[in-house]
Design a protein around this nucleic acid. Structure first.
Length: 426
RNA sequence: GGAGUAGUACUCAAGUGGCUGAAGAGGCGCCCCUGCUAAGGGUGUAGAUUGGGAAACUGAUGCGAGAGUUCAAAUCUCUCCUACUCCGCCA
């Protein structure tokens, strides 16, 4: 969300930005927002003046009553009653218009960074850099679910019976590898100086509404029956929610956290749940990075953060590349964002395993997260990035370490977490 | 889950209907004294969010949140939230 003052003062910049994102259908919002804003301010002045009169009149009633001037005080009382009636209308209108303004403001996209490549949609995202040689083995690599099943590590028939499509039983060494990955990801980030955190896995509706749109909420979030609780779709929800409405001391910044949580997503719409695999599922686990920092530090954190994910996967011998989101593919809140994609030797293409974003102060404005020093209070900048989401990350490790005989070589970095084991065999 | 107590600015804290947007203190600024430290004395200042105004200035909101009573609410009523204490339950 942008600052209304900014929109008021720089309407052309905002419009230019909307064009860059190929959202011309939103252009009219800018002028509408400016008109609404000035109407609201007019109402505010009107209301303020009436409230001033009301306060002064009420105060004078007190004085009159003390002097036992009952009649004069009754006249003044009537005046206040009239003012109150007028105020009700003005306040109602102000509330309505403010809501309308906020709704419009919420869908006006954040100003994207100058470095973001211009493009219409995800087909025009730009590869930035490859890390590691995409390796094509001389033998065929089976579908990940088949590999896992053949190693007695996956049972989707059972999960279908217990929970339906989109769930999975991981078992034996595959389950252990999954946990090893998460533990390693956790320690990897702790070593980078991030503070480890396990957040609540359920949050109240008002926090959910703070971190996403209603549409997203419907398409993603599972609600607990008869409770004001939702299962989180990512620990970012809990981690950003942690700071909702807070004013931090600038000395506490930057706050660099790495959080673990299971993630629950309905995955309604676009892609849906695939029948066979464990690539897109209702329940997965994730190690995340969340950073709150000063505005001027945001870009350097952004670069540091995605590079940590790259480093993480490289330490597991998984070739990766970074793909920058072009203007048209960038979610409205984001200033700049890139995906980290892992190489799939089976499909011989890259697939998304993580996403790194800087949101500027847009998220903080929405949720009212501030920091202050002696001189001023200001909105913080927020960033988030995936270290590891698994089973997706598990798939990358399995495919890239699959041996011709059907076994999986365990990357060195994970062996300590696997009791020293070097290979998973049938 | 039950019962009790509390929630006022950066912190502590006074305050049961109008003269309280908030006494007082710490804090913070300046000055003095003393000096190994700790401390002491004087004086000044601010306090959150936002509107109008070129500015000086001026207004609104703001006492955990919301609703209500009233001409008028930090103060009365209701609901909720949070913290603490006690009890119950539980991996």
């Amino acid at each position: 969300m942008l600052d209304i003052k900014f929109v008021r003062e720089n309407p052309d910049t905002v419009k230019e930005n909307i064009k860059k994102k190929f959202q011309d259908n939103k252009l009219h919002l800018v002028d509408e927002v400016i008109t609404l804003d000035s109407k609201i301010r007019e109402l505010k002045v009107k209301g303020d003046n009436l409230r001033q009169e009301k306060n002064e009149t009420s105060e004078s009633i007190g004085i009159l009553l003390r002097n036992k001037e009952v009649e004069a005080s009754n006249l003044k009382k009537e005046r206040v009653v009239t003012i109150n009636k007028e105020l009700i209308n003005i306040e109602e209108e102000e509330t309505t218009l403010s809501q309308e303004l906020r709704e419009k403001m919420l869908v006006i996209p954040n100003i994207i960074d100058e470095s973001v490549p211009i493009g219409k949609d995800d087909t025009q995202n730009k590869e930035i850099e490859k890390f590691g040689e995409p390796y094509i083995p001389p033998y065929e690599i089976p579908y990940h679910a088949d590999i896992c099943a053949s190693l007695n590590g996956l049972d989707k028939d059972a999960s279908g019976r217990t929970s339906g499509n989109g769930f999975y039983y991981l078992m034996n060494d595959i389950a252990r590898l999954h946990s090893a990955l998460l533990s390693y990801a956790r320690d990897f980030m702790i070593d980078k100086g991030f503070n480890y955190c396990i957040p609540p896995f359920m949050i109240h509706g008002d926090v959910v509404a703070g971190v996403m749109s209603f549409e997203e909420m419907d398409n993603m979030m599972y609600k607990i029956e008869n409770e004001d609780l939702y299962l989180i779709g990512t620990s970012e929800h809990s981690m950003i929610g942690k700071f909702k409405g807070q004013t931090l001391d600038e000395k506490e910044l930057p706050i660099a956290m790495t959080s673990y949580s299971p993630c629950f997503r309905k995955e309604v719409g676009a892609h849906g749940i695939e029948e066979r695999g464990i690539y897109r599922v209702h329940q997965f686990e994730k190690q995340e990075m969340v950073v709150l920092c000063k505005k001027e530090d945001a870009i350097s954190w952004y670069n540091k953060m995605w590079s940590y994910t790259v480093e993480f996967f490289r330490s597991l011998d998984v070739p990766v590349r970074t793909l920058e989101c072009c203007s048209g593919d960038l979610a409205d809140l984001k200033v700049k964002s890139c995906d980290v994609e892992a190489w799939s030797p089976r499909q011989q293409k890259y697939f998304e395993v993580g996403s790194c974003s800087t949101l500027g102060d847009a998220q903080a404005r929405r949720l009212n997260i501030k920091a202050k020093n002696k001189e001023e209070t200001y909105l913080v900048s927020t960033l988030n990035n995936t270290v590891l989401a698994t089973p997706r990350g598990l798939i990358a490790v399995i495919e890239n370490n699959y041996m011709e005989d059907g076994s999986i070589k365990i990357p060195k970095a994970l062996r300590n977490y696997m009791g020293g084991k070097e290979i998973i065999t049938k």
